[in-house]
Design a protein around this nucleic acid. Structure first.
Lengths: 173, 173
DNA sequence: ATCATTTCATTGCAAATGAAATGAAGTCAA
DNA sequence: TTGACTTCATTTCATTTGCAATGAAATGAT
């Protein structure tokens, strides 16, 4: 090895740090006022968009693992923000939806989220960044597909549940 | 509120999900083989670049909070990968450096990291994404500076330690 | 129909994390 | 010099998370 990695020029690192920072700053807009964690907000936002949703689908859509979703949903349920119902066609499934109270809370947070996003740069800059992220998404999909096609043992092991969780996500662009 | 937020078009969300996914897939390249967590890798990578470093500076550079750094460093120390030494000029400080073993491990992971990055898109695409991320970084800095200048009570509270941790980071471009 | 396998949501366990607290050391003002 | 205040790394405490396990339900093969 000739030179240490230059972290500031290393894309995965740069992406991770800025994403964490962005999340933290957005969360600052709603956490103290509404006592909602990042995971909980993400779940609420998805439920507001498509409802009811199963744990499995919610996990895929939010890029969270299923225990995390299950627990976050239970926390939200304790606060009357979401409700769960069995699915008659498949008794394994649980249908999760926002309550009226959850909808109201969502409506109060959305303006904060929009205002925050508006400060991240003008429309052109944001469009450019989104295009870059879309391209990255495509590359990651390709990498995962290649790993599956190769039947590579290491990749199979490390992708494990992640691969199956991502599959429906890729199917819903 | 007229319409629910379109999460796929919401930049902070898109960024968070792709960053998490990227990190997870990169981590898959080294976690099973070397039993190194994402935080630990980040710390090792920084120590390989600049050493010795204090917990404070390491926390700032890795965008982690100080307890997390302190603990990760202790885990790495238990494995003989890093060492700690007091700083004679300021007894509060602890100087952290990679051991020979830590350097060797770093050297084995770097090719994996580089190979992973190379698969994230061609040089032009990556450069465009990095440019977008740099612009975002600038916006986030500006937002934090504005919050501090306004002396806004809410922003001060939620930024708290984060602001002071980010300060040296901004000063080392 | 039976049985093997897969899928689902939840739970258990151990480890990690975040916020607050702590005690030591340093800086600054009077 | 003393005392107030700040900074540092670590620890405590409560909570969350990740992985594995679990039991129920569904699917597929025979």
């Amino acid at each position: 090895m000739d030179e240490p990695l230059d972290l500031d020029g290393f894309l995965p690192y740069r992406l991770a740090v800025l994403a964490a920072r962005t999340s933290r700053m957005l969360a600052a807009a709603y956490q103290a006022r509404f006592d909602i964690s990042i995971h909980e907000w993400r779940i609420i936002a998805h439920l507001a968009q498509a409802s009811p949703v199963t744990v499995r689908d919610l996990a895929a859509r939010t890029d969270l693992d299923r225990p995390a979703v299950s627990r976050a949903v239970d926390r939200l349920r304790l606060r009357g923000l979401v409700e769960k119902a069995p699915v008659s066609t498949d008794r394994r499934l649980v249908a999760i939806a926002l309550t009226g109270e959850g909808q109201a809370l969502y409506g109060r947070i959305v303006p904060l989220a929009r205002a925050f996003e508006a400060r991240l740069g003008d429309a052109d800059a944001q469009a450019a960044l989104m295009a870059g992220l879309d391209a990255l998404d495509t590359e990651l999909d390709a990498m995962e597909a290649a790993a599956r096609a190769a039947g590579d043992r290491n990749a199979d092991q490390s992708d494990g549940d992640g691969s199956s969780a991502n599959q429906p996500q890729s199917g819903q662009p």
